[in-house]
Design a protein around this nucleic acid. Structure first.
Ligand SMILES: NC(=O)c1ccc[n+]([C@@H]2O[C@H](COP(=O)([O-])OP(=O)(O)OC[C@H]3O[C@@H](n4cnc5c(N)ncnc54)[C@H](O)[C@@H]3O)[C@@H](O)[C@H]2O)c1
Ligand SMILES: NC(=O)c1ccc[n+]([C@@H]2O[C@H](COP(=O)([O-])OP(=O)(O)OC[C@H]3O[C@@H](n4cnc5c(N)ncnc54)[C@H](O)[C@@H]3O)[C@@H](O)[C@H]2O)c1
Lengths: 244, 244
DNA sequence: GCAACTTTGTGCACGCCTTCACAAGTGTCC
DNA sequence: GGACACTTGTGAAGGCGTGCACAAAGTTGC
């Protein structure tokens, strides 16, 4: 993915600093952006790494190191200018342009996503809604008409869509992703609980509800008296271990 | 209620192996579980680490090491017995019991979550739906009646709920989490784009849609000709860099 | 202009996670 | 019964991320 070192290619010009920002840092930039936006709304002009770190829920050293990958945007003895820093992070992430997004699968979740206001306010524009069910086509959702899957490639092309959101049943996820990629989409956010393969150069992220719940359950099981979680079989195993 | 060691220093009996499974491994167990379930449905009886790893989308050495934390459940020269391994992982995660879940905030997303069938099939039972809006109380969603926030504590107590899902607006997330925790919930899954603080001993995970999209946008910006993403300001900076 | 104070940016050490590579088992075939 | 083929389980190495601690750099007050 981070194949910036090609012999003939220039080292990614156009987006000035940007060289090799660690993935862990990239994942936190949206967090900082959100905290900064809240500060702007409260009318705060300057913020120290300590304050910003607290409101973003991270360690202040980590915050400073993260920001240092973008450049030296702070002033020693003072802190960071809120609005300026926000702009820099925004630019780094690529939120100065707006991204056209297609949502595939307009069921329960697809409806919620389409109606969600949090996209537009963050630089993402839902450009198309697509479903395979003819009964859904034509339906208006959040001011957009649901189109049939047959039109997927056409829409991606016409509307210059680079980002796809998949909210179909798990079974359909791989074929849908294949079509998205073939049509030119290079970033996919997948909500379906399926393992999807995509070619090199395509970014795939997944939001997996049941995985999250299962991780919680794992820890939960180890908290409030593990004895409560004893099944008959487990109790037998335990007894055997203790007696043997 | 911080660590598993309450008064007696017993090394957590009841859940046999379980000792210090790395967090990264825990996060992958649900993935393996899903792959195994798919194999069961296809009638496969035995699987090698190589095959299972491929279908789970991970490195086979990593898979074997992950499984080794649970115990030696494989047979050299053969592989893993699908159904047996699935049961072991299931038990490790704590899916042999079913967990009661409360969803707070029955708006767009809350409705989708409530109607989602993927909970029950994975050991989670939606036990209560709660909203602050009196207009929503009484409404039937997925066979459950939406209750008013006033009843939150009562419901958590009566239904022995340990897991809470927060789907309220960001502003309400912290107060709602505070109430959940005060009422005895020790695991929270938060969908609201807010930084929430919880006391030690409470697990908080977040699903953050806009963060995911922003991470995709970051990488997207660096792919297809960064030149396209040039703003006037950036072009000036670039020109300066090249000329100077 | 200087001293005291504040806060950034980063070198460094530590720990976790990933991956390779291989010895140690297990089943099969003759 | 023994050689062979296969697969697990794990030691060791390398890479990445985190957080401490501090020097460098800037501001304020006099
Ligand atoms: N509902 C939730 O809260 C929720 C939560 C987490 C994950 N998910 C996952 O998200 C996905 C969607 O969930 P849902 O509850 O909206 O399901 P749903 O059945 O309500 O909606 C699925 C939609 O996808 C459409 N579809 C099916 N095949 C398609 C194809 N090949 N191309 C285009 N559209 C197609 C269907 O017509 C339907 O409208 C599922 O994989 C589910 O597991 C849902
Ligand atoms: N809709 C989506 O697809 C989506 C996607 C990602 C994140 N989110 C986030 O999830 C949250 C919910 O989104 P939504 O689209 O469902 O919003 P929504 O406005 O449709 O629903 C919010 C619900 O929460 C209820 N509520 C408000 N305050 C409450 C309180 N103190 N206690 C209990 N209930 C309360 C409201 O009455 C309303 O029914 C938001 O924070 C949103 O940013 C939504």
């Amino acid at each position: 993915m981070t194949r910036t070192s090609s012999s003939t290619e220039t080292p990614t010009p156009g987006v000035p600093p940007a060289r090799g920002v660690p993935e862990a840092t990239v994942a936190r930039l949206p967090l900082y952006l959100r905290a900064l936006t809240a500060l702007v709304e409260r009318g705060v002009a300057t913020v120290s790494s300590e304050e910003l770190a607290t409101s973003a829920g991270v360690n202040s050293a980590k915050l400073r190191k993260d920001l240092s990958y973008l450049g030296s945007y702070g002033t020693r003895g003072v802190g960071y200018e809120v609005d300026f820093l926000r702009h820099q992070i925004s630019r780094e992430i690529g939120l100065t342009q707006d991204w056209a997004v297609v949502i595939v699968g307009i069921g329960n979740l697809g409806h919620a996503l389409a109606n969600y206001g949090g996209f537009a306010s963050r630089g993402f524009r839902i450009a198309a809604l697509v479903d395979a069910d003819p009964k859904r086509t034509g339906e208006k959702v959040a001011g957009l008409e649901v189109r049939h899957t047959d039109e997927l490639e056409q829409l991606i092309n016409d509307l210059d869509i680079h980002i796809g959101v998949v909210a179909t049943p798990a079974r359909a996820a791989q074929p849908v992703c294949d079509r998205l990629v073939a049509a030119g989409v290079t970033s996919i956010l997948n909500f379906a609980p399926a393992i999807v393969q995509v070619p090199e150069g395509v970014d795939l992220r997944k939001v997996d509800l049941s995985t999250e719940l299962q991780i919680l359950a794992y820890h939960e099981q180890r908290k409030n008296g593990a004895a409560l979680a004893l099944t008959a079989e487990q109790a037998a195993e335990l007894a055997e271990a203790v007696n043997g």
